[in-house]
Design a protein around this nucleic acid. Sequence first.
DNA 1: ATGTCTTTGTGAACGCGTGCACAAAGATGG
DNA 2: CCATCTTTGTGCACGCGTTCACAAAGACAT
Lengths: 252, 252
Amino acid sequence: MATGRTHRPATRSRGIPEATVARLPLYLRALTALSERSVPTVSSEELAAAAGVNSAKLRKDFSYLGSYGTRGVGYDVEYLVYQISRELGLTQDWPVVIVGIGNLGAALANYGGFASRGFRVAALIDADPSMAGKPVAGIPVQHTDDLEKIIDENGVSIGVIATPAGAAQQVCDRLVAAGVTSILNFAPTVLSVPDGVDVRKVDLSIELQILAFHEQRKAGEEASPDGSGPAAAPKDTSGQGPDGDVPAVMPA
Amino acid sequence: MATGRTHRPATRSRGIPEATVARLPLYLRALTALSERSVPTVSSEELAAAAGVNSAKLRKDFSYLGSYGTRGVGYDVEYLVYQISRELGLTQDWPVVIVGIGNLGAALANYGGFASRGFRVAALIDADPSMAGKPVAGIPVQHTDDLEKIIDENGVSIGVIATPAGAAQQVCDRLVAAGVTSILNFAPTVLSVPDGVDVRKVDLSIELQILAFHEQRKAGEEASPDGSGPAAAPKDTSGQGPDGDVPAVMPA
DNA sequence: ATGTCTTTGTGAACGCGTGCACAAAGATGG
DNA sequence: CCATCTTTGTGCACGCGTTCACAAAGACAT
């Protein structure tokens, strides 16, 4: 799971738990793969395995959407694909703008995952004047000055921020002021937005640090003569465990 | 305090909740910024605001690390930076390999967030022979054939997968077999790994779909602001669909 | 010292998410 | 039509995470 979410339980309208919503795309992906192989139906057990979750959890998730399964048989793949797509709002077209066309922004623009599922890159925006007009992924980059106009003319409600951290909040403010109400933030900054605007963040270094924590814990448990814990088998030989208490406070 | 006092060890408390671990990098980032501005101490309230969380949550998070604050004053910034860094395992160097040097992989290689906090890009690996030797972000790309050797010689335990979905599982298997125990997966696939291996995934299209869900809900709420009597009506009731029944199936 | 003021650290309550276990629903076969 | 078998849908219990609210701890002034 990534990122904290909004602190608002206003999801009572449909009653679909946030955790369930976060898994729907996973199910959809697995179902789409089945659909391409022309598999007509699938059981909760099979689908759960494909999505990497517990089958009871999957069934409960689907129960929030309605009773779309047939007992003794399973779920109709095509029908479920449609229902989930509709629930997620993928039956309509979502124009998206990407702000900040550096290495990451360009990679995102080229990413196929956008167009394939109801999302359309409406525009690429960058603050560098020398980028203007230059095509990236077949789309000409436009200058930040025209941000508001672009948002307005294309009816954009979802924005992707791929700028340096320093510019993120400012870009965010402009996006919101122009009418964007959902933001996907790749910049390593906490964005503050007014109520009603959703922000999800993708942060590489946070993910790595979490992995490092667990990695350290794994390494420390092998040698630790500590009473509790699994005095597990010596897989050791990690060699690189001089550890000790090296100071090494890191820079920026 | 059910689970005994942690006053004694203060070094390795294996009882740090996962949710807390996920927030430590956030605190660390905010603290580092304060440190650079030479701010000596900070209150839980201020730091919480900077990190975008609740102050009570932050205090509880820190309580798992030990009692590093001073009542009536707050937390010593430098000390806390060090403690969190140590807890996350950032006081040591983590060599990382990136597999799949396409648009995304190249962007990741160029990302400054790597080197800045204890992580070092040890190698870039790609399956395309024509990429071999070609430098990306100052590091020559190596061929997949040498994957095992690279992992071994550099003592790599963290791998980043930025390949197409189709190659992800295979690359994952080889990484794990070679000794990698933590994986950051950018490919839109569910990876299956043996016990003891951590996997975190970053998935653009899932994030977008979650945003789309909320976006759709916002748009649909304008008409009927009622919402009272959440009689949990997950049953049918779909008759309100704006569209017909087009099974918008989409490609991968 | 003593009192006041600030801020931490945490007990306790609450709510959400997860997983078990099973009854109900429907398919299938005789 | 009845029996049996498969698989869904869900009631329930449990554990984690969040939040409130406050006593304890220390700083600081007198």
